[in-house]
Design a protein around this nucleic acid. Structure first.
Length: 499
RNA sequence: GGGGCGUUGGGCAAGAGGUCAAGCCGCAGUUCUUUCAAAGCUGAAAUCGCGGGUUCGAAUCCCGCACGCCCUGCCA
């Protein structure tokens, strides 16, 4: 147990963004690695943007990824009173001042212009910055609206040592007097985070690099409040293929973590992939590995291994096969292929249940058969949903699976002789006492020899007759998995309805 | 406009002055084969953003430039 405390502090946007998920993961890994605490805090100070439902999305994503938190979720809005108190404390101490500039003069459009102009002429001091205390109090008392701004010192600079980006310095003159408290009394982000992080005893702040510049302001607030700054570690960003921002508006569902859950990803696989986006094991001996279990990630994780350069989330829009990052897809498939059956089976079960294909006997008497089929399909499954897609023919009793048109043409209709051969082959199968890979193969090859046709013709025809597909596992495994009765029925069915 | 951060094959990346610049994804070919995969093998793909410098020697150190991203809000 250590006294390290980290937090993940997303705003409630209704879904967990992959970038946010990566931030959460790194915090979680750091906490688990160091034996510290991982805290979840929802940054809902922008009241217009938050609702219970919006929070739910974040929680769902984290739960699916298996990122459990030790404390929270806390809600930033619950601490507004403390934020306000801090603002007044700073006012009291002379670290802040009331700005009576009417709100209309400071709205978005005008502010941008002013900022540009101000930059051209150097920093312009806010006219209320040095208003006497008496006048400030008087105007406030008379009901004139104001914001509270931080009073950034005129001379000197701030600095902090980022665990990833190294020493960061910035002249005070490049930092504007930020607003701490809105005229309606609402505390603003930079104040709120600092107060909350102090309150929650956060020792390390691991977050996106988009906060790097703002960190200086926060460091200033820590100092003014007389508290030590935590250690900062900023993470490189995850960009879209055009190196722009990865956003839900532009890129759709691909940015939301729940999409990966719904698309048949194994959480561990996605975690593995995410961990390698912007981080790699610092010790060179693991540099040529890609697959890491959760335990290994926890053991290996360190702030030193975090990269500085932004990473690109590589996917092709409109390409069904590469709908998301190819390496993520590969990794998921690698996990599906290799994890132990007892870990894979529950995922498959859930998928089958969703599509109404599950039967309780798969947990009982038909367990061995179930595992046999899963073993067959997993080799070719890129996502968990493939178990119901490609696997459907194994789980239905009738013929309610799709016949691929090209497969039918190529394997069933190409040779007219099949119309006669298939029912006979079915009879040959029906006559078998033992129905195994070996006996099926022997029967089929013997049958082919007797009829003077190539075994391949019957093999491919049978595959399509039994599964509707042109591709799939080795045929004799398919036949044995489908079982004698269904195999016989499907061969006959194919012969008079599709051949 | 100002400030900050970054730049190794299409993507993820190893590398931390001195072997032909790892590995993975993806791509092409090949072996195997009853299909598709898998697996194995082979291959294409990087003048280490560009230009200077330091050095016997630089992807690695220094300077300049270009490009990209972030911040610059009474958003978070």
């Amino acid at each position: 147990m250590s006294d390290i405390r980290v937090r993940f502090a997303p705003s409630p946007t209704g879904y967990l963004h992959v970038g946010g998920a990566r931030t959460a993961l790194f915090n979680w890994l750091f906490a688990r690695h160091t034996g510290g605490k991982f805290i979840l805090r929802i940054e809902d100070t922008d009241i217009q943007r938050s609702s219970e439902e919006m929070v739910r999305g974040i929680l769902d994503g984290m739960e699916w990824l298996g990122l459990d938190y030790d404390e929270g979720p806390f809600f930033q809005s619950d601490y507004a009173e403390k934020h306000r108190a801090a603002a007044y404390e700073l006012l009291e101490k002379g670290w802040a001042y009331r700005d009576f500039t009417p709100k209309e003069e400071r709205d978005d459009a005008t502010v941008k212009q002013q900022a540009a102009e101000a930059a051209r002429q150097g920093k312009v001091m806010n006219p209320f910055r040095n208003l006497s205390r008496e006048e400030s109090d008087a105007r406030s008392k008379s009901g004139e609206p104001f914001v509270i701004r931080f009073k950034v010192p005129e001379e000197g600079k701030t600095s902090f040592d980022d665990a990833v980006y190294g020493l960061q310095e910035r002249d005070y003159k490049d930092i504007e007097d930020l607003v701490l408290l809105r005229s309606d009394g609402h505390p603003l982000y930079n104040l709120s985070v600092v107060v909350d992080d102090i309150l929650m005893g956060i020792t390390h702040i691991i977050r996106g690099q988009d906060h790097l510049s703002n960190t200086h302001k926060q460091v200033l607030i820590y100092q003014a409040l007389g508290k030590p700054s935590p250690r900062f570690a900023h993470l490189p960003l995850i960009l879209a293929p055009n190196k722009g921002k990865l956003s839900k508006r532009k890129h759709g569902e691909i940015v939301s973590v729940t999409t990966y859950r719904d698309s048949g990803f194994i959480p561990d696989a996605f975690v593995n992939f995410l961990a390698l986006l912007g981080w790699s094991p610092a010790s060179g001996e693991h540099a040529d590995r890609e697959i890491f279990s959760r335990e290994e990630l926890i053991n290996l994780f360190s702030l030193e291994g975090i990269h500085k350069a932004n990473a690109v989330f590589n996917f092709t829009e409109g390409d069904a096969r590469n709908w998301t990052d190819q390496k993520a897809l590969w990794m998921n498939w690698e996990y599906i292929k290799t994890i132990p059956m007892e870990k894979l089976a529950p995922f498959v079960k859930a998928d089958l249940q969703r599509s109404g294909l599950w039967r309780d006997e798969y947990d009982g008497g038909r367990r061995a058969w179930f595992e046999q089929v899963v073993t067959l399909i997993r080799e070719r499954a890129r996502t968990l949903t493939d178990f119901t897609n490609h696997g459907r023919p194994y789980f239905v009793d009738d013929f309610s699976f799709e016949f691929d048109e090209a497969a039918v043409k190529k394997n069933l209709q190409k040779d007219p002789a099949l119309k006669e051969l298939l029912p006979q082959l079915a009879d040959a199968f029906a006559a078998l006492d033992e129905f195994t890979h070996e006996t099926i193969e022997a029967a089929l090859r013997k049958f082919a020899e007797e009829k003077g046709v190539k075994a391949g013709l019957l093999i491919n025809a049978t595959r399509t007759a039994l599964t509707g597909q042109a591709v799939g596992p080795g045929l004799f495994d398919v036949v044995s998995a489908v079982g004698k009765d269904r195999a016989v029925a499907r061969l006959k069915h194919a012969a008079h309805s599709v051949c």
